[in-house]
Write a protein that binds this DNA or RNA. Structure first.
Length: 479
DNA sequence: AGGCAAATAT
DNA sequence: CATATTTGCC
């Protein structure tokens, strides 16, 4: 049995640092790495320095001395079993609270895959790799250690104390000194999320259920609940995005002239991505926030908007941006690197924030951009630099239309209407899946108010139109 | 179990 | 205050 007595030796001078230690230790436990860690060699590292690279590129230094810390000496073949680990967690919690007076975080039980990313570039994923986890996680350790060595060598130009105290903040659960024993939040790192998405896609978005996902992910530190929760959010987000896609596509369809022009003239701000493969992979996000129907369909045939890449499409998204975030458009003249502080930068305000340049667009004149899911195409258009006045008038002319569709996006009526409103119905018929998604999305948020006093068309009118086009709305009355 | 929504933490 | 994650309920 591993002993946690060593924990009592952890100094508490810098809480942040110590919290990080606890976190690291916890990670190690959760990694079932008993066979990978030589406890004796570990002990020799009296002043082990963990440094983690944060997404921002800043580094987390944990001036560390994990004295007398033992990793399970033969805790069993292949690591701890579930029970043992829980016991360990409990012990650890106890140690933290009673001795160290640290929050009883059995914190971040998840691997910090982010640090792993730097080493394990090409990563082999698959359903059958549950065995590899051990190695992979061993790599994490190595990565942590290596990063520590390297960056302490090359980056410690400035005073070290500076960094260690000021930057060593984690999502520290400070005051919450383990009262209710509420589970510590899972940190859905890029890598974790990537695996999640991969698993989901493997199963098929519709069929993906937590237990299976968990299985495929092969990450032991997660529970079904964790997955379920994340899945819930994933689905919700996906619906939003699909709704946006439909929305934008329908709008695009209304103003083909504008689109055509802008594309001809190479205006990245307006450049649409066509539904099929017509858009060069060179700028997969060149829609400048203009969402699109997935140009290349995944093998599983899910018609997901390309922006769902944001959600970490495993085969595409290698960007450092956070997973929920709209990736930066490299073709944009003024695009800013979005700060990776939050997952959800998808909605309009943030979209504007990260896609436009403050000096050019000091105050955006249209308040409706605060509306949920207000499509960024409006922003792109209205503020697009280098756009001709001719074009602008065209756009202005189209604004009311866009406006309506924009603000009403949350209602099933408007979403469906958006799809139905295409001038040439035969040109744009979203796949049933998308329609379904849009509808269910809308049903989920039926009462979003419409800014600017705009009203949606009557249900009857929309239904009539849909019916005329042969689109059957399956009545999924939830009441 | 799975899905959803309320509760809660950050 | 908004978002992310956990918890609890059906």
């Amino acid at each position: 049995m591993p002993t946690w007595a060593g924990m009592t030796h952890v100094k508490v001078e810098e809480e942040d640092v110590d919290e990080k230690k606890v976190e690291i230790l916890d990670s190690l436990i959760s990694m079932n790495l008993t066979q990978c860690i030589d406890s004796s060699s570990m002990k020799e590292e009296e002043d082990f320095n963990f440094q983690f690279l944060e997404q921002s590129g800043t580094k987390l230094e944990c001036d560390n001395s994990l004295e007398g810390f033992h990793f399970g000496n033969g805790g069993g073949v292949g690591g701890f079993n579930e029970d043992t680990r829980e016991q360990l967690d409990a012990d650890m919690d106890a140690a933290c609270t009673t001795v160290l007076d640290l929050p009883a975080t059995s914190s971040s039980m998840c691997l910090d895959f982010e640090s792993l990313d730097s080493v394990d570039g090409q990563e082999t994923n698959g359903p059958d790799e549950s065995i590899e986890i051990g190695e992979e996680e061993a790599l994490l350790l190595a990565a942590a250690a290596t990063a520590a060595d390297e960056s302490s060598d090359r980056e410690s130009i400035g005073p070290v104390e500076q960094t260690s105290s000021s930057q060593c903040r984690n999502k520290g659960s400070k005051g919450a000194a383990s009262s209710g024993r509420r589970k510590t939040k899972v940190d859905w790192t890029q890598e974790l999320h990537r695996r999640f998405v991969q698993a989901v896609e493997q199963l098929g978005v519709e069929k993906a259920i937590p237990s299976r996902i968990l299985e495929l992910m092969g990450v032991q530190c997660l529970t079904r609940h964790n997955i379920a929760s994340h899945l819930q959010k994933y689905r919700s987000h996906r619906r939003h995005m699909i709704a946006r896609d439909v929305e934008a596509a329908s709008w695009r369809h209304r103003r083909p002239l504008t689109w055509a022009r802008s594309q001809q003239e190479g205006n990245a701000w307006l450049a649409p991505i066509q539904t099929s493969s017509s858009f060069p992979a060179a700028h997969p996000y060149a829609s400048a926030g203009l969402p699109t129907i997935q140009p290349r369909l995944p093998a599983h045939g899910h018609h997901i908007g390309a922006h769902l890449v944001v959600w970490g499409h495993p085969t595409v998204d290698h960007s450092p941006t956070h997973m929920w975030q709209q990736p930066p458009v490299n073709t944009l003249p003024f695009s800013q690197e979005p700060d990776s502080s939050t997952y959800w930068q998808q909605t309009a305000p943030a979209c504007i924030d990260s896609w436009t340049h403050p000096s050019i667009f000091p105050a955006f004149p249209y308040p409706f951009f605060g509306a949920p899911y207000a499509p960024s195409f409006c922003a792109s258009q209205l503020v697009a630099p280098g756009i001709t006045s001719n074009e602008r008038s065209l756009m202005d002319e189209s604004l009311p239309v866009a406006l309506y569709q924009t603000t009403a996006i949350d209602s099933d009526i408007s979403a469906a209407a958006g799809a139905a409103a295409c001038s040439k119905p035969s040109d744009f018929l979203p796949p049933q899946e998308i329609l379904d998604a849009v509808i269910s999305e809308a049903l989920a948020n039926p009462c979003t108010p419409l800014p600017l006093g705009l009203k949606p068309p009557s249900v009857a009118a929309v239904m009539a139109e849909l019916f005329r086009q042969g689109i059957n709305i399956v009545a999924t009355s939830t009441s």
